[in-house]
Structures are given as C-alpha cells and as structure tokens.
C-alpha cells in the first residue's frame, strides 16, 4: 500500500476498531465470519488440555484467526508479549506455558477488551499474566524485554504496520521469536481510499 493514510483516516480507523471491539468485548458471537469462543479454539487446534483449563466465559471470549502457539514453543521461564491481546485468551495460555518463572504481558488499545482480559485472568486464577493499555506501534517496554512476541488477528487492523514490526523486533531479546496469525489481502486492496478505510476492520 503506497498511499499515505492521513491523520483523519487514522482517527476513523481507530474509532471503527474501538467501536467494533467494544461489542466483541461483551461477546464475539456472531460478529465474525469464522468460529469464535471454544469452537474457535477447537477449530484452530489449540492444545485440548489448555482449552480445558479455561472456564467457560474465558473460552467464550476467544476470537483469533490462528493458533500462534503452533509456530513454536513457549519455554518455561520465557517472557511473552501478546500484541493486541483483546480478551487475553492467548496471553493467559502463554502465561500457563511460561510457568511461574516466566510471564505473559498483553497490550491492547480497547479499554473494554482490557477489562474483559482482567476479568478472564481473575476467573482462571493465573498470576503470571498482566495487561496494559498500549498500541503495537509504540510499545512501553525496553529493548530486548521478551523471548517471544505473539499476535493474533491484530496487525491487519493497525495503520502503521511497519512500526509494529519494528517495535516487536526492538522488544525481542536476541534469539527471540515472533509468532503471528493474521489476515492477508488475497486480492488488491479496494482502489477507492474511502472504501478501503471503511473495510479496515471488516
């Protein structure tokens, strides 16, 4: 995409995303073209033992597009970052895999999603996970803070993708791994910029 996105466009995109995900925070059911909740977790072949560990309201809040954990291990002791953690299901699973010596941190821009993530954390009793409000474009962490960075269906929503990837690289330790699931455009994007912005959070 060579066309620049103006600040006005950015504001519209952000408003669209926050509006949609405010609803998703209550329940993702029916808001996506693919399965969400426990059906989503099973459809994407998450580890059944991990799915079992999640209380019903936590599993029901899941809306990812892939299983980032299928791309590589989260080792005990690892520090994991989840960019665009939403209701935090992946963050909580990462925290389980990293165990008490490790930790998982989730960041998101939608306050309602972060509130849902905190509630989910409380329901699972997982202590080595935390959530904070931040954008992938500007991460509030020092260089080399994490062993693994995951993201699930989020980067497609962020206007400045190059910044997110550079930030992910910056906060990874040398040897660190990036594991992402996301939507790719299969065709050329709509020519009309107004249509493209409208379709951003489709």
């Amino acid at each position: 995409m060579e066309e620049k996105i103006t600040q006005k466009d950015r504001t519209r995109i952000q408003a669209g995303i926050r509006g949609k995900y405010r609803k998703v925070a209550q329940s993702p059911g029916g808001l996506f073209k693919y399965p969400t909740g426990r059906a989503g977790l099973e459809g994407l072949a998450y580890d059944p033992d991990q799915i079992k560990r999640l209380p019903e309201p936590v599993a029901a809040s899941y809306c990812g597009v892939g299983n980032p954990f299928s791309l590589g291990p989260v080792n005990p002791g690892d520090a994991v970052l989840d960019i665009g953690c939403g209701a935090g299901v992946d963050t909580l699973i990462a925290a389980l895999m990293a165990g008490p010596p490790g930790k998982a941190v989730g960041v998101d821009v939608v306050p309602e999603m972060l509130a849902r993530a905190e509630e989910n954390r409380r329901l699972t009793g997982i202590e080595n996970a935390s959530f904070q409000q931040a954008s992938g474009e500007k991460l509030p962490f020092g260089d080399g803070s994490f062993d693994v960075v995951i993201s699930n269906g989020v980067i497609n929503l962020i206007p400045d993708k190059a910044s997110v990837l550079k930030e992910a690289w910056r906060v990874l330790k040398p040897g660190g791994r990036l594991m992402i699931a996301d939507q790719m455009l299969a065709d050329a994007p709509p020519r009309d910029p107004a249509v493209r912005i409208d379709k951003w959070a489709q």
Binding site: G40, G43, G64, G176, R177, I180
Partner: peptide
Amino acid sequence: TGFDSSPATQAMLFRARKLV
C-alpha cells in the same frame, strides 16, 4: 488457517526470529 475474515483476505501463520 482457514479462518478468513472476508472473501478478500486469507488468515495466515507467520514466524520470524531476531538473530543473536
């Protein structure tokens, strides 16, 4: 992954590494 959000998009899994 098959969890496509629209006819124009495809959900994919990517990984990469920051070398030492």
